[in-house]
Design a protein around this nucleic acid. Structure first.
Lengths: 229, 229
DNA sequence: GTTTCCGTTATGTATAGACATAAAAGGAAC
DNA sequence: GTTCCTTTTATGTCTATACATAACGGAAAC
């Protein structure tokens, strides 16, 4: 057997790193490379496509393939369940619903979800605990028209985050992390001082047809968001 | 005939979302699906592989393909140049080197890089400005054995971040975002108050053979890390 | 000179067929 | 029952071929 696509990928990466193929420069076309390396064009294609997805190459039909000028690397961040996130740290996860009701939709939340003021929404505030100590507190608004069953979700047994992940798969959404001072309410729930620097995640998710949920998640001090690249 | 892998992917995704294929459940094998949909197995393979990479499916040889029980979605975060990050906000980027020298390597940095105390390193502290206002301040340690040319980098013209991205392509690394109170030094450079909640990024990158750089980047208050999912 | 059109070219993708490989399942030896 | 081995099976991958598609570049029409 000849080379596998991973071998081709490794060889291409070697040439990129050794500057044999310099940044911005066009590399040989797939057919030539296949001939040179002694494999099928499909194999070269698989390798180069993977490198393009990883940000090392830029490919355009007819224009050929060139080395990315400033290799813009992408990091992947897995968005796990909060429960898993706690368990991955070797701690025991639990949660407590603080309150659950249907207040009028405040304009900022309304805007984020793109809903009319009359849309049926439920608000749930939840405290997540790791080994019994506060880990994060969540203020979540759920669009009931998109997930009618949420009204009956047994949130004492399964946390809102996990219930929604399991029962309302979504299309797309946005995450926004920022550092902020803990509000008085955050501080009360997280047992920290008002104004302490905490990580706040704001997430809005949309289903195929309608917005699903908007959530503000305030992590207790000391939270780290780790990415691999 | 006309069925492309994207069509197959869309159909599979429809079945996952409609719960025709329920979470945790095993789906038909590639050969059967290909026969059912009227395309080649390779086409089905391409579609299902893409869905697995996106986190919708879990595949194992011989064991078949099943719908991910709790679709663990991954978000991609592009790690742009700081300069680009500023320019993408429609502002003008500039930078100023605060100091550049070769102090002894402090143990925490040494541990992060995995280097002996005698390793040749250069420390550069840089302030990044957006429209002339402080955007972030950087404390960077560069392993000169891995990037000897760094000693001659004209950091008045090109910022350290960009110089390294362009001249020292790396293999892998870790990013760590956390919310922290601004130190007195952060506060002085960023024109904010000591103790203000700021986002701190700690990044360590490694080349094929040796560690390259360790950097602590403190963003001015108000910084947001946005991800699309 | 400008616009339109068309051929060339590199990548994108589909296909059938083949073999490789991991892992589960079942059977044989003990 | 436990261990080891063999079969079976679904995914992983390579190959050769073919056609699709985007885009560059030049020729033709005006």
């Amino acid at each position: 057997m000849a080379l596998g696509w991973q071998d081709v990928q490794a060889e291409a990466l070697r040439r990129i790193r050794s500057r044999e193929w310099a940044p911005g420069e066009q590399i040989p076309n797939e057919a030539d490379l296949a001939r040179e390396l002694g494999c099928a064009r499909a194999t070269v294609n698989r390798a180069l496509r993977a490198l393009a997805e990883a940000g090392w190459l830029e490919r355009r039909r007819r224009a050929g393939t060139r080395v990315a000028p400033a290799p813009l690397r992408r990091a992947q961040v897995a968005i796990p369940l909060i429960r898993k996130e706690i368990e991955n740290r070797g701690q025991t996860a639990s949660h407590a619903v603080i309150d659950r009701n249907r207040p009028p939709l405040p304009p900022p939340i309304r805007a984020a979800l793109g809903l009319p003021a009359t849309a049926p929404v439920e608000r749930v505030r939840t405290l997540y605990l790791a080994d019994g100590r506060p880990f994060a507190c969540e203020d979540r608004w759920v669009h009931l028209a998109a997930v009618p069953d949420f009204a009956d979700a047994p949130l004492d047994r399964i946390d809102p985050n996990e219930w929604l992940v399991r029962n309302a798969p979504f299309d797309h959404g946005t995450l926004d992390y920022c550092a902020a001072p803990a509000t008085a309410e955050d501080a009360r729930h997280l047992s920290c001082e008002t104004g302490a620097a905490i990580m706040v995640l704001t997430r809005t998710t949309f289903g195929p047809a309608a917005p699903v949920t908007h959530v503000r998640l305030a992590y207790a001090p000391g939270y780290h968001l780790r990415l691999e690249i």
